[in-house]
Structures are given as structure tokens and as C-alpha cells.
Design a protein around this nucleic acid. Sequence first.
DNA 1: TCGGTGACGCGTT
DNA 2: GAACGCGCCACCG
Length: 105
Amino acid sequence: MCAHRLNHEQIYSLVRAIPKGCVATYGQIAALAGFPRHARQVGYALAALNDDSVPWHRVINSQGVISERARPGAVEWQRLLLEDEGVVFDHRGRVPLKKYQWQTD
DNA sequence: TCGGTGACGCGTT
DNA sequence: GAACGCGCCACCG
């Protein structure tokens, strides 16, 4: 198959593959899907998501920060979900990617 | 068809 | 390190 553009299902299946207790970046997911510079589309796809089977909380930005969004409290909720899986945030409220980022190679 | 917006990322200042 | 600019593109009015 050779999709000429990023589709949501592909993103969701990759996000489902992120191991518990790990995180991935938007750009990483896009790259794995074969679209290196489409991080923004990954964020858009997740924003449209309404499926509990997708661990969307394991996706954060390249700085290890949980991205702001319109829904109030969503950032806190995401952090709680991650902490519940054993992810520890540093004193600045960031996830040390060196330690928790999903390694695929 | 066009422009604004958005859960981003990277290079430059 | 932080702020800014630009690239990317789906969605909506």
C-alpha cells in the first residue's frame, strides 16, 4: 500500500503500539507513518479522536511537554494517566524523553 | 476557491 | 534557553 497522505487509522494503530509506561512525540508518530514533517496532522487526528482504545495520552510534543488545548483540565488528566503508568515528570513538569521515549529501532 | 485555525517541529536569532 | 518564522495540511465558514 502506498497512501499519499496521512490518514487517521494509521496514526491510531501506531499510537496503540506505544508500550505502557512510554511516550512518543507527535513528530515521531508522523515519521513512523512515513510522513516526517506532518506532526501537526497527528495532533489534529488525536484532537478528533473519541476512542478509549487509543492511548492518546502517551503522545506529547518534542520538548517533553503536554501540549495545551481548548479543553480545560485535559492537560492535568493526561499527566495523571501517565503517572499512573509509572511515568515520572521532572520538577519543571516535563517528561524526560531520554528515559521514557518509545524506542523503535 | 480562500483564509484562519490547530493536541507540532525545526532552524535561526 | 526563549521567542519567532515558516513548513505541513485537514477542516470549516
